[in-house]
Simulated assay, not measured.
Amino acid sequence: MKVNVDRARCQGHAQCEDAAGLVFEVGDDALVRLRMENPPEELRPAVEDAVRWCPVEAIRIEND
Rank of each mutant, 00 (worst) to 15 (best):
R44P: 04
G21S: 11
E42A: 09
Q15P: 01
E48G: 00
C16F: 03
N63F: 07
G21L: 00
V47I: 05
W53E: 10
L34T: 07
V5R: 12
I59W: 04
G27K: 02
N38G: 06
F24N: 06
R52V: 00
A50D: 01
C16P: 06
R35G: 11
L22K: 14
P55Q: 09
G21P: 09
N63T: 13
N4K: 15
N63S: 13
V47G: 06
V5K: 11
V32H: 12
E48W: 01
V51A: 00
D64K: 15
E37R: 15
H13Q: 07
R44L: 11
E17C: 01
A8S: 15
D28H: 05
V3C: 08
L22P: 11
Q11L: 11
D49F: 00
E17G: 02
P55E: 10
D28T: 06
V51N: 02
E17S: 04
Q15V: 00
C10S: 11
A14T: 03
A46Q: 14
L31S: 04
E25A: 15
A20P: 03
A58M: 10
L43I: 01
I61T: 00
P40G: 09
E62A: 12
E42G: 01
D49H: 02
P45S: 04
M36D: 13
H13P: 02
R60K: 12
P45W: 02
W53F: 08
D29Y: 01
G21M: 02
A14E: 10
E25F: 12
L34N: 05
F24L: 03
D28A: 10
R33Q: 15
K2A: 02
M36T: 09
E48F: 00
D18H: 04
F24T: 01
A46L: 12
E17P: 05
N4P: 01
P40F: 01
N4R: 15
E42T: 02
E25V: 07
V23T: 10
R52F: 03
P40T: 03
D49M: 07
E42S: 08
R35K: 15
L22S: 13
M1Q: 10
H13S: 04
D29C: 05
V5W: 13
D49Y: 00
V32T: 07
I61L: 12
H13E: 12
E48T: 01
F24D: 09
A20D: 05
P55R: 10
R7K: 14
A14P: 04
D6S: 10
D49S: 08
L22V: 04
E57D: 14
V23G: 04
A20Y: 03
G12D: 09
H13I: 00
V5L: 13
D6Q: 05
R60L: 12
Q15Y: 05
Q15T: 03
